[in-house]
Amino acid sequence: MSGQGHAIRAAFRSALGAFTLDAAFEAPAKGVTALFGPSGCGKTTLLRCIAGLIRVPDGFFAIDGEVWQDREGRFLPTHRRPLGYVFQEASLFPHLSVRRNLLFGAPRQKTDGRPEIDFDEVVDLLGIRELLDRSPRNLSGGERQRVGIGRALLAQPKLLLMDEPLSALDRRTKAEILPFLEKLRDHFALPIVYVSHDVAEVERLADHVVLVETGHVVGAGPLAEVQSDPSSPLARSRDAAVSLKGVVVGFDAAYGLLDLAISGGRLFAPGPPARAGEERRVHILASAVSLAHDAPGRSSILNAVPAHIIAMKPLDPFEVVAAVALGEDGGGARLLSRMTRKSWVELGFAAGQRVYAQVKSVSLDAGRGEAEP
């Protein structure tokens, strides 16, 4: 690997006690890159290597052409790496006010070559202005985590690392925090490496995903590309889904339906009014997609898009998952369709065939309530 620009490049190899880490990945130096896998697979270890908290001699890390570590002995210690780190627990200083916690560690001099992240901008984005004069002792778990995120941002980082920041929170508090993380992702031109074992978080927040198993990277790529690969571990999940970018074409106020353009087709989805041109993240479960050889007739299913079957993988002796590419020419976005092996065999489906993908249900912003048009 070389320190080329506009990318995150990481490679670490080491025996750490009984655990062996041998992981490498490349990702864009923008948006959210999720390190995803089961608990204990090495995600946090990989993140700590990126931060320089674990020094691995056989290691390399570079971002935007800036090398933080290489195999020739270069190693920037953590305090010299322009990064922010958000832990599972906020770990605020109890003797300092929220305001002073936010400013703790903020550089005293302006950072070179990067736009300054403004204090008021962070406070308002995270909704913590009314907390500034409080003690951390008087904050809820969600409020503490928002302050921890603000403190990491005000360190003026070039890279933000987030280690399962929602794992210590209950379901209600997670739902409260997720919109703030979406705002953070969309508002700041700041690359984020986000560790999670929760597929719903990854689907809602990530642009790029790195799959980690037992210390190894077993897949990496844009989120929709990895999700729609029937060989991917994500495709084998009972909740397998694909997250796509949709652009609002119109809104039917009489029926409360958004008309969304996706690559290779159009979808209708229940949702609040939106202006033409606005982007929405579209989330489609494999179990909500059925395939048909012929154009469907009158049906309660509003969404039927021409597609081509590109691959199939058995899930077990009785179920399969097929990947289809949307559009008359099969050049559009990819979806997964989960079905019984009986359906696959008796309908004579095969890779290369032109079909219709019938989408029974669509979720917007991948995590808000699913709706069935």
Rank of each mutant, 00 (worst) to 15 (best):
296 P>E: 09
26 E>M: 03
143 E>G: 09
25 F>V: 14
136 P>Q: 01
275 R>C: 00
39 S>H: 03
157 P>M: 02
126 L>H: 02
141 G>A: 07
340 T>C: 15
100 R>L: 09
50 I>Q: 03
73 G>I: 01
210 V>C: 01
118 D>F: 06
267 L>A: 15
210 V>E: 02
231 S>R: 14
234 L>W: 05
208 H>G: 00
227 Q>L: 00
57 P>N: 00
152 A>F: 05
86 V>Y: 05
272 P>A: 13
56 V>L: 01
373 P>R: 12
184 L>M: 07
346 E>K: 02
167 S>P: 14
131 L>D: 07
345 V>N: 08
256 G>F: 05
324 V>Q: 10
169 L>Q: 13
270 P>G: 13
262 I>S: 04
302 L>F: 10
252 D>A: 01
13 R>W: 03
118 D>L: 06
277 G>S: 01
344 W>H: 08
364 L>C: 05
109 Q>L: 01
353 Q>R: 10
102 L>Q: 01
312 M>V: 15
142 G>I: 06
84 G>H: 11
101 N>Y: 04
23 A>H: 10
65 G>M: 13
285 L>H: 09
308 H>I: 11
261 A>Q: 13
104 F>H: 13
249 V>M: 13
258 L>W: 00
146 R>A: 02
314 P>R: 13
55 R>I: 07
78 T>A: 04
185 R>H: 12
268 F>W: 15
265 G>T: 09
187 H>M: 03
173 T>S: 13
181 L>I: 02
182 E>T: 06
317 P>S: 08
86 V>E: 03
196 S>G: 05
276 A>R: 12
370 E>C: 08
276 A>G: 04
127 G>V: 10
97 S>P: 04
71 R>Y: 01
155 A>G: 03
357 A>R: 07
265 G>E: 15
